[in-house]
Design a protein around this nucleic acid. Structure first.
Length: 917
DNA sequence: GGGGTGCATGAAAAG
DNA sequence: TTTTCATGCACCCCA
């Protein structure tokens, strides 16, 4: 493998670390990334020394605090790193050692670039890691993921590792048993890092202690004991044992404390093999500076994150406080392939919940976001193959084996752990999970976490509800565990997507991000097939409705009016835009207003119709009305007017909601008729105020500025009167639509009639001899007559009484009758053609023939028509408040046709009124 | 007929 | 291109 910068390759490397003893290829494995370099990149370590590195990397510069001294790695000057006076007298080296101030100043002068510059003096490495190599040998097939420059010491052919800033260092081994203390970044300035020493907390010996015990969780500062410095970690029995199941913690919970970042611990995991320990990139047990997090954790990845690279880690921002993302223990089969999505992210609370009060150690294994299938009634939880093979008992037969898993409450659940052959592979499932799922009230999207209690190896399962679930994309999960997921990236994303949360003052915390991530994941992956329960559906519905309410045509969008079956549709080429919620009103003069509420003073301000306001708007943004451009300006609407408007608005919303959820078409008709009556009523009272109060029933497509027939029509009874014989566009359209409406009703009736007649004929033909139907009595014929005819006759009767029941529906006949009390004497049967003739009559003519003048008159006169056309309660109030007409912003599409007809009727009423006058 | 079981399928992710 | 896995569905068993 060619080295970056044209460095002579080296093939034979040997580690002189007595604890390592690896030769040639580094102990049989690849060279691996060691500790991160200050300026980026990583040291190179063989497999075995990688283990050593893991043991000492965070301890070396601290361990002497108790003993009070530390040698500079360059000049050998003894530093008293434990004393206050010397705290700023040295610097942390990329090599893992420390450097005195003098050497710090001189270090760059000794740098040699990878292009062949002189390598500075390399300091003797006593019992430290050292690489040997020969310049004429190739270092092929090596992995240098971070590609630190590898240089040869011209004198001893040792390999010097030169970081990207040409800062050389010699791999500095650390004696076993070195202790550590909390490293905190005091300041990062000009690339020179000053470190601050604080109390020691950890010894290397403790790093070998397996797992995180309850008492050692982040909830309490760990009280690690100092290990014997003289012991070799790899030879020490305790450590050796712990190596085999070692745990190294990884700290990602960085609490923001003023200008200082405090790293919190930790979720630990065991590591079986030193080799895999390095390969897996073990978590590191100590508290780290953000800088260290950003760098050291990088090598945890088996693959680089796809996001966040290139961004800058900003330690001033919080990043997932209390959230632990742990690489699962590298053990068992397939340990190396566990996808980050299954890495257990566990909180302190969960740890506490699982471990309870015991001193047991929790080893998070993996987690799984429940799919719809998992949470469904099938009772099968699909296990990730890698997880199942790595952490669950091996099974060779598809039948599997019983598995007992304890939940956080201590209750044991018995599952069947098995697999199905699938595409030359296996599909692992946990069967019998339904009782557990139900008991824990888990749903699709919730997360189940599998852990293991040590000692004992008992499996435990925790869970997180979806609202608290972090379901990060793998790349981000990787980056979190990696320390390279940048808070800025996360939060910018969160802020962009969670403006509402921010709006309420809550910073984009874990929950927000969780929501974000959950959503993105659900949409972007197979999880989008998650079953939505009713609650989710409701949430979606509400969101949708609200979104609909905020939808506006783009300011520059000009609709194209098209006629489809006599209905006008506004078509927009441009997508709608989101706007701040506003209320549209119609004055008695027909003028429309848009009212919007100031986010500061909550006063309502009048805006031009065409203005689309962004999510936040204040009076100061009101450039259209200088008188109201300040919150101190009085509100234009009187309290009474405002109350009326808001009441109508809320009522409108409520009704819209009921449309969307409950009403069928017939009910929509009723509502539309209701609106018709309301409009008529308000048309009458509209004269009383400066603005009329009438609820129009505009469809959402009728936007401010719309010039369609519905929008341009004057309020009922207002404006210029039309002659009954008026042939203007409005009147013609009104007549045409009424005709169309009635025709459609008749057509539907006819279709039902024919369908039922066919059924009856078929029934008769089946049950009776041919011709027997002729024997039926007239009464039978009458009863078998399609009820629609009767209903239609009832309808005509109603109409003859002065009521136009557009809510007429055969299915609602009984109700209809009941609404009118006892069934009335039926008029003579009418033929279909007769009914059509009735339907074809122009509404105005028909109403005149039936002695009708206006619906408003009927309604306002308190006639019995209220039984047919009951006004909404709010609308009744509107009669008295009657100031402003609230224009509906949207309606269900299905109601549009009726709305159009309603508008037509309004038009006709106006026309008819004109005729009456 | 309903529920459980085992397998197949295909979309999405990973390599 | 391969692998994973969520889900559909046919089949079987049982009430």
């Amino acid at each position: 493998m060619a080295m970056p910068g044209g460095v002579a390759p080296v093939v034979a490397m040997r580690c002189t670390n007595p604890a390592c003893g690896a030769t040639a290829t580094g102990g049989g494995g690849d060279w691996r990334k060691g500790w991160p370099l200050r300026s980026g990149g990583f040291a190179l370590l063989c497999d075995k020394c990688g283990l050593a590195y893991e043991q000492f990397v965070f301890c070396d510069i601290f361990h002497q605090k108790e003993s009070g001294w530390r040698d500079c790695s360059f000049c050998g000057k003894r530093l008293h790193c434990g004393c206050v006076a010397s705290k700023n007298s040295y610097d942390l080296l990329d090599s893992g050692g420390v450097q005195c101030v003098s050497c710090m100043k001189n270090s760059t002068a000794h740098s040699v670039t990878a292009s062949g510059q002189v390598v500075p003096k390399l300091f003797p490495c006593q019992n430290n890691l050292r690489f040997f190599g020969k310049s004429d040998e190739l270092l092929s097939g090596r992995k240098f993921e971070q590609s630190p420059s590898l240089m040869l010491d011209p004198r001893n052919e040792d390999i010097a590792i030169v970081n990207k800033s040409n800062h050389p260092f010699m791999v500095k081994g650390i004696e076993a048993g070195q202790s550590s203390s909390i490293l905190r970044q005091k300041e990062i300035e000009n690339g020179a890092r000053q470190i601050k020493w604080e109390q020691p907390t950890l010894s290397i010996g403790d790093m070998g202690r397996p797992f995180l015990t309850r008492s050692q969780s982040a909830l309490e500062p760990p009280q690690y004991t100092r290990r014997d410095d003289n012991k070799d970690p790899t030879t020490d029995s305790t450590t050796s044992e712990s190596i085999s199941e070692a745990c190294l913690s990884m700290s990602l919970g960085i609490a923001h404390n003023g200008n200082r970042m405090e790293a919190t611990s930790t979720v630990e995991r065991p590591i079986l093999s030193p080799t895999t320990a390095i390969a897996e990139g073990r978590e590191l047990t100590t508290t780290l500076s953000p800088f260290q997090h950003a760098q050291r954790a990088r090598h945890f990845l088996t693959r680089p994150p796809r996001v966040g690279e290139g961004a800058v880690f900003d330690p001033t921002k919080d990043i997932f406080p209390h959230l632990r993302v742990a690489r699962p223990p590298a053990e068992g089969r397939g340990r190396n392939q566990l996808l980050p999505r299954y890495w257990p992210r566990i909180t302190d609370q969960e740890l506490q919940q699982i471990s309870g009060d015991s001193n047991s150690t929790i080893v998070p294994l993996f987690e799984k976001v429940l799919s719809a299938s998992d949470a469904g009634r099938i009772g099968r939880l699909v296990l990730p193959k890698a997880c199942a093979e790595a952490y669950f008992p091996p099974i060779s037969q598809p039948e599997g084996r019983p598995l007992t898993i304890q939940d956080a409450r201590g209750k044991e659940w018995h599952f069947q752990f098995r697999f199905w052959p699938n595409n030359n592979s296996r599909m692992y499932v946990l069967e019998g999970v339904t009782p557990c799922i139900q008991s824990l009230q888990l749903q699709a999207g919730d997360t189940v976490t599998f852990s293991r209690i040590e000692p004992g190896g008992k499996l435990v399962m925790g869970f997180r509800k979806a609202t608290n679930t972090v379901s990060l994309p793998d790349s981000q999960i990787s980056a979190i565990a990696n320390g390279s997921l940048l808070s800025e990236t996360l939060f910018s994303t969160a802020n962009e997507n969670l403006g509402v949360a921010d709006k309420f003052g809550s910073r984009p915390d874990e929950g927000s991000l969780q929501f974000l991530q959950k959503r993105s994941r659900n949409i972007g992956s197979k999880s989008r097939r998650f079953l939505m329960d009713s609650e989710d559906a409701m949430e979606l519905k509400l969101t949708w409705e609200e979104a609909q309410e905020l939808l506006r045509p783009a300011p520059t969008a000009k609709p194209t009016i098209v006629m489809i079956e006599d209905y006008e549709f506004e078509e927009y080429d441009e997508p709608p835009v989101f706007a701040k919620r506003s209320i549209f009103t119609i004055r008695a003069t027909g003028e429309q207003d848009q009212w919007i509420q100031c986010d500061d003073c909550s006063k309502w301000r009048r805006l031009p119709l065409t203005i689309i306001v962004a999510s936040k708007w204040t009076c100061t943004d009101n450039s259209w009305d200088p008188k109201s451009c300040s919150c101190s300006a009085p509100e234009e609407l009187t309290p009474k007017e405002l109350q009326s408007v808001l009441q109508q608005y809320e009522e409108m919303r409520r009704r819209k909601g009921s449309y969307g959820l409950k009403l069928n078409v017939a009910e929509m008709d009723a509502s539309s008729l209701d609106a018709l009556a309301t409009a008529a009523v308000f048309g009458d009272v509209g004269n009383q105020g400066t603005a009329s109060v009438a609820t129009t029933t505009k469809h959402p497509r009728h936007r401010p500025g719309c010039t369609c027939i519905v929008c341009i029509q004057p309020p009922s009874g207002k404006g210029p009167k039309h002659n009954p014989a008026c042939t203007c566009n409005v009147c013609m359209t009104v007549r045409r639509r009424f005709k169309t409406l009635m025709m459609r009703k008749k057509q539907r009736q006819s279709e039902r009639e024919e369908a039922e007649a066919s059924k009856k004929i078929a029934w008769v033909n089946r049950d009776e001899p041919e011709g027997s139907n002729l024997s039926r009595s007239p009464q039978t014929l009458d009863t078998t007559r399609d009820s629609s005819d009767v209903t239609m006759l009832d309808k005509v009767a109603d109409m003859n009484k002065g009521h136009i029941d557009l809510n007429f529906h055969p299915a609602a006949r009984d109700d209809h009758q009941g609404q009118h009390g006892a069934p009335q004497a039926r008029p003579p049967p009418a033929s279909m053609m007769g009914l059509l003739e009735v339907a074809n009559r122009p509404l105005d003519n028909y109403m005149k023939q039936n002695g009708l003048t206006s619906l408003a008159g009927e309604q306002a006169g308190g006639s019995s028509s209220t039984a047919t056309v009951p006004p909404a309660p709010v609308e009744s109030e509107e009669r008295t408040s009657n100031e402003v007409r609230v224009a509906s912003v949207e309606r269900e599409p299905e109601a549009m046709a009726v709305d159009e007809a309603v508008g037509d009727n309004q038009q006709d009423k106006g026309v008819d009124d004109a005729a009456a006058t």
